[in-house]
């Protein structure tokens, strides 16, 4: 087993004919992902990458029955695209785009929670179940089917964790980048809950970074609800206060959200800490014995 995505996933690509969507769709197809359709308003009826293009998600749902959607549209249209997919009944939506206004996400989050939709992202690399399906922009080749579930706020840091666990022969069950924005569709806790319930997952790697209190909240949750070992690395130990470090959510504000605070809390709650990003793999192997 794995979580959220697998061989049964029938993927729709929103913003399908754009250059980024095209590049990553090609790679996903090569990885074995079943892309059943794409949406680009105004281009319905065409074929792109030999896959049918629709004018709307609703039309695509009627014709090709996707059960997940990935969004590559520009940031100013993401609110509309996410809500369109949700309205059409899709229950798993992945938004890759970076730069979505926070107030747009505030509305989107309320709406998708109402509708019982899982949104991953925005500003994220997506989700992959190695050997089954890749819904995102991660390099497929570094992944290996295995026992470690990975959750991360950062794209490229996820790849580091993946590569290290692959190199050590542990492999991954499912890897999810929840994204670096202040209001993510899916939280650490949402994913922890799923990985705890997943048989294939033997250990969980949680990669956090400065800003906000998501790691602290996850730590509390882990203490009471997660029996599997959790290994965590927090990026930004050398980041200055008050500066946004790339991601909209990565900022130490009013002395809150430092790496030191997060590490302390995680340790208190029984989480294994990888002091440095180079130790994520070895620490996981050590914990798994």
């Amino acid at each position: 087993m794995s979580i959220l995505v697998g061989k049964e996933t029938r993927l729709l690509v929103q913003g399908f004919t754009g250059s980024q969507a095209t590049l990553h769709s090609e790679q996903s197809i090569e990885y074995g992902t079943n892309i059943v359709g794409g949406v680009t308003p105004g281009k319905g009826g065409q074929k792109h990458l030999d896959i049918p293009v629709f004018n709307s998600v609703h039309e695509a749902v009627e014709e090709v029955e996707p059960n997940a959607s990935i969004i590559f549209v520009p940031a100013q249209f993401c609110k509309d695209s996410i809500l369109e997919a949700a309205d059409a009944g899709i229950k798993l939506i992945i938004c890759i785009t970076e730069g979505v206004p926070t107030l747009d996400m505030l509305i989107v989050k309320k709406k998708i929670d109402e509708l019982g939709v899982t949104l991953i992202g925005p500003n994220c690399p997506g989700i992959i179940t190695p050997g089954e399906a890749k819904l995102g922009i991660m390099p497929g080749s570094i992944h290996m089917k295995g026992s470690v579930g990975i959750i991360s706020r950062s794209g490229t840091l996820t790849y580091e964790a993946v590569k290290q666990t692959s190199d050590l022969g542990l492999g991954q069950s499912t890897c999810i980048g929840i994204g670096g924005d202040p209001i993510p569709g899916t939280s650490f806790i949402d994913v922890l809950k799923m990985l705890e319930a997943d048989d294939q997952t033997k250990a969980i790697v949680m990669v956090g970074e400065i800003g906000g209190t998501a790691e602290e909240e996850a730590a509390e949750y882990i203490k009471d609800n997660v029996s599997k070992p959790v290994i965590s690395y927090i990026a930004g130990q050398t980041a200055p206060a008050g500066k946004r470090m790339g991601h909209a959510g990565a900022i130490i504000a009013g002395g809150k959200g430092t790496a030191a605070d997060k590490i302390k809390k995680l340790e208190e709650c029984g989480v294994h800490i990888a002091e440095n990003l180079l130790q994520i793999g070895t620490k996981t192997k050590e914990v798994l014995g």
Partner: peptide
């Protein structure tokens, strides 16, 4: 570095090995 998280991670790694980053 590509990616904000990895950029922070790289700064941390430099510090870890006794160096000092000039920028993010």
């Amino acid at each position: 570095v590509n990616g904000a998280g990895l950029a922070m991670g790289t700064m941390d790694t430099i510090k870890y090995f006794g160096g000092s980053p000039a920028n993010f």
